[in-house]
Each structure stands twice: as structure tokens, then as C-alpha cells.
Amino acid sequence: MTNDTAIASPTAAGSIEVRDLTFAYGRDPVLKDVTFKLDKCAIGLLGPNGSGKTTLLRALLGHLKGASGNIDVLGCDMTVKPHAARKRIGWMPERGGILPDMSGVGMVAYLGELSGMPTTDALQRSHEVLNYVGLADERYRKADTYSQGMRQRLKLAQALVHDPDWLFLDEPTSGLDPSGRVSLLELVRDLARAKGFGVILSTHLLADVREVCEEILVLRKGVLLDHGRVEIDTNGEHEVFIVEGFGDETAFADQLAAAGIPAERQERLWEIAVPRDVGAHRILEAAAATDYALRRLEAKTETLEDLFFRLVDDRSVTPDEGGE
């Protein structure tokens, strides 16, 4: 067992690096020149349905045959030798993923053994992780009698049993009621923020990403559109303000233009970008000089939703586009 050391030190740092990954089912390209590098943290893998999220996770597990490019997970080339890395990855599939005719504890222990754990360790760990995910009282019940919320927790437990470095979670809150969703996200956030797991959370729910993740990867039609922090950049050169008022619109705009500040009309509102060091001061001056009565003046902050919709908007990327 060459990787026992790796298993025994699950908190060791490890990164994921993908370069020029391209994959197609037949003639339909699913991933196109995807390149990114992830350090251990919580990453939201965002994209509309059919954008290639699950395929990308499969690629990271070494499940794709015929993919071009490099997939390096925890120092292992996943196209050549994926087994060593899989010992350090926990995978929670979206659909199914429950082994029938087994109790919860039996299923988790069984999958622990398949991950390379000794039998007694796997059994002990399965009790521990089922307790952690809140299934301690239901662990001896047949897994196929579990409710949807319990199934999702069980799938998380099986992903955790061998104490991996990374968790790949494919739509973990799919089909959950609001309280189930909140408690599952609470678990995932705890694992990512407090327990030191790297997490890739594949979802089309922006709220889930906002709850848990520090970084995002945005995919659309197999193209990686963005990779960055979840917090929107507030340190740029310009600050955008939304302005609404009454008076001579043209004079107000001319006054701003004379000060070197472009103003863009959006129906009844102005969207005005001013240098960050100047702030709203120049807008107030221009309004005073032209007797333009301000009714509303507020800083515009781009939300994750704004960013996501801006990136995946059909007008922003053509289907044939092959790069970021």
C-alpha cells in the first residue's frame, strides 16, 4: 500500500490543477479548454443545468476516458493513476448513491473498506461520521428506507468515512426542504471552514455557494467563464452609484461629463462611475450646480447573482467560444 501515509495524514495540504481540459461525448463537446488551479478551500462550481459541472467532477475523479489536457489532483495524474488520489477524495453523487439492502452504518463501513480502511477502523469511523451528520439514531435502519434528507446526510457520511482531503459534492441540497437544506449546508460549511476540508460544491443554487464557499468556478456550455473569490471586488478604481432625481437631465449629465465622470442613463436611473478617491462628492456638486433635485443616491454593489447572470448571459458568450 503505497499511499497509506497519505491516508494517515489527511490534513496534508493538496491542490488541484487542471490544464486545457477538453472532453466530448461523441461529437458534443462538454468541456472546452478548461484551466484552473485550486488550493484547499471551499469552491462553488456554478453553472446552469448542462453546463458540464458533473462532467468536470468526474474528470477530477479520473472517470473520463479520452479527455485531453492535464488533470492533477493531489499530485496524481488522474488520467493515468487515479487510485492514489481517490483515497483522499470523498465523492457525493447527485443521483442515487445508496446501496440497497444495507443499514446506514453497514453501507458507510463497507465503503470505508473499499477506500482502503481496515475493517475495524471502517466500522468505528462509520459510527463517528454518522453521529456527526446527525444520523446516529437511524444508523441501523435500512438505507433505502431513509427520507431524502437522511439520504443526503448518509451520502455525505460515506464521502467522509475515510477522512479525505477533498470533498466533491454534486448538488448536495437537491430535493431537500428548507430546513434540511440549511442543516446540510451548515455541515458542509463546518467541514470547509472549521475542519480543514477542501470542498468543491457543484450546484446551480447561488444561495448555497454564498452560504459555504470562498471561491467560485463558473461554467457555461463547458467553458470556464470565471474563477475568483465569492466576495465581489470592492477595491477597484471606480465606484458605481445609482442616482435618481428631478430637473434638467441634460445639464446634469453635461456637468458630470465636464468633470470627467461618465453617466449612463438606465430608464429612470443614472448609473455613474466615479473615481473611488472622489466618491459621491462630485455627483452632489454637479446636482447642486444644475439644480438637479436628488431623490436617490446609493452605491451599487455587485452581488453573486449579478456576477453569475452577467457571466452566463447568452449575449455575453457564444456557444462556440472556446476560452475564458
Binding site: M1, D4, I7, A8, P10, T11, E113, L114, G116, M117, P118, T119, T120, D121, R125, E128, V129, N131, Y132, G134, H162, D163, E186, L187, D190, L191, A194, K195
Partner: peptide
């Protein structure tokens, strides 16, 4: 969650059976 806790696995060193 914070009351349940989570312990990382400490390998007992016993030999694992092949898959």
C-alpha cells in the same frame, strides 16, 4: 454541528483487506 464535533481518522495500522 459544533456540539457534535468531528475527529479526523487515526489509522490503527491494521492491514486493510483488498477491495
Amino acid at each position: 454541528v459544533y456540539e457534535r464535533g468531528y475527529r479526523h481518522w487515526e489509522n490503527s495500522g491494521k492491514k486493510a483487506a483488498p477491495a
